[in-house]
Design a protein around this nucleic acid. Structure first.
Lengths: 144, 144
DNA sequence: CAGTATCCTATAGAATAACTAGGAATAGAA
DNA sequence: TTCTATTCCTAGTTATTCTATAGGATACTG
């Protein structure tokens, strides 16, 4: 399993805010209850998202969290990279430029690059809104 | 980084045998030297490959390891699954049938399935021979 | 039977994952 | 101003996995 709870919770958390946010900001405790996740753990995860500028926080009573942008402006990749770090299959692809001294002769690098590209293709082209829409479509299938 | 040294070494090890195997079987020590990997660690990794029936071993002097099949008959996936376990992005996709009770309402499952399919598409359709060929082509590029 | 290889099992240090805990800082309401 | 609800910050904890290392048992060949 390559995506840890941290990244998966972050995604559910962002989707939860996207779906439930109306006028008032959303409290961590609400999200924790709806998603059935430890609120103390969620606090830490959301702190990283605040620090990265993905959500904004409001302290004090009636405080909570709000998205900074519209759901269609968040890619899954932008969220997972904050919480999971790099999404590369191998370390040498984590930097912009591959620093590995064996790179030239490496027989496996082509495979890792293919995997890397496939993963990026998906996470960088799926937005929160896409996920919400697809989920609605799926739910419709059941109703029809 | 989702692929650990175990899986990466296993792949290099299989490729090393595929490329260097002539009449005589290949000793772990040889591979360890060529690939610059601890031989004791390689021993454990290759033991798993033997147990899974991917390579056969010959004990005693003049012993070593041999591939059981032709390089084009090994997919990368078959090797990585032996050494890395499941390659799924999330736990609920590791079994044939998704057992998760939240599956029906899960808003993220579609994304994980897409990732899972993309990974499988690559690892199950790339063989050792493909990697050898592609590497040769790349080397040619430098020469030309 | 000596030597060379694999085979098997135990151990260990380091890193990571997945939380848990407690209190400080802030802001709104009474 | 004080109470309270909320986020913010940091440290600690438990379990697991990673990445080996080590040492000897077993098997085969010449």
């Amino acid at each position: 399993m390559m995506i840890s709870t941290r990244g998966r919770y972050a995604l559910r958390l962002m989707l939860d805010i996207a779906i439930n946010e109306k006028e008032e900001p959303i409290r961590v405790k609400e999200i924790a209850e709806r998603q059935d996740i430890s609120d103390k753990y969620l606090e830490q995860i959301i702190a990283a998202l605040v620090k990265a500028g993905l959500v904004k926080s409001l302290r004090g009573p009636q405080g909570g969290y709000r998205l900074n942008k519209k759901p269609e402006e968040y890619t899954v990749g932008s969220i997972l990279r904050v919480t999971e770090g790099k999404l590369s299959p191998v370390a040498c692809l984590e930097d912009e430029v591959n620093q590995c001294p064996r790179k030239g002769e490496c027989i496996t690098i082509g495979l890792w690059e293919k995997l890397n590209d496939a993963i990026k293709e998906i996470v960088d082209n799926t937005t929160l809104q896409d996920m919400i829409d697809e989920h609605r479509d799926k739910a419709d299938d059941y109703i029809i």
